[in-house]
């Protein structure tokens, strides 16, 4: 489905009284503070619901502590809010469940996401957590584009994908970490096998 043709939830800027426009304060988990316009916040379903539930007045915003976003760092949150401010007032795409999906990355977004993959990874987590539909669309598209023209072996390297054997080994390790007795039992079993015993019990 084309994003341009997607059904949209209209954000009616004109309907918001001028006196209600205000800037909320948010704080990242590394104590960086950001001031974000009410209209920009509407791009995030999570934050929009949060500020609605809090029912802050302009005075509250100034006098109360900044709203803490515990699991996102300042560098990531800066990108998130830059994106929200740039796209404030824009319609939010509604997923109609159709596949394949077509998403174009606008120039501004491409520049914003001209970052290392570590930060892109955090940006996607943040967009998902804050439920910013279009930011999630474009950031996921950027990750999907990394697969262009790649063979399976190249994809494995690009996305750091484990093989079946590595998945099995990781699963075993996780099980053993949960139950230390499992490793002891396995060692005992191997020892008995070496001694020629054909029954464990």
């Amino acid at each position: 489905m084309s994003v341009e043709n997607a059904p949209v939830v209209d954000v009616d800027e004109a309907a918001i009284p001028v006196e209600k426009k205000m800037y909320y304060r948010f704080e990242s988990n590394d104590k960086k503070e950001f001031r974000v316009s009410e209209l920009a916040i509407q791009q995030s379903e999570t934050l929009n619901r949060l500020v609605e539930a809090m029912g802050y007045t302009s005075e509250d915003v100034e006098n109360k502590p900044a709203i803490a976003i515990e699991n996102i760092d300042g560098k990531t949150l800066k990108l998130v809010f830059q994106w929200c401010e740039h796209h404030k007032g824009e319609a939010i795409p509604v997923d109609d469940g159709s596949v394949p999906k077509i998403v174009e990355i606008p120039e501004f977004d491409a520049k914003l996401m001209d970052i290392d993959n570590g930060l892109l990874f955090k940006l996607i987590w943040a967009a998902d957590y804050l439920n910013i539909v279009q930011l999630l669309n474009v950031s996921c598209k950027k990750v999907a584009n990394m697969a262009q023209g790649k063979t399976p072996a190249q994809l494995r390297r690009v996305y750091l994908l484990p093989s079946d054997e590595e998945d099995e080994a990781a699963k075993r390790a996780a099980q053993e970490a949960q139950d230390p007795r499992a490793r002891e039992v396995e060692e005992e079993f191997e020892e008995r096998k070496r001694q020629g015993g054909n029954s464990f019990f």
Partner: peptide
């Protein structure tokens, strides 16, 4: 490189 499988499943 980006660890795809460490993203949430819905993503």
């Amino acid at each position: 490189m980006l660890p795809l499988l460490r993203l949430p499943v819905n993503v």
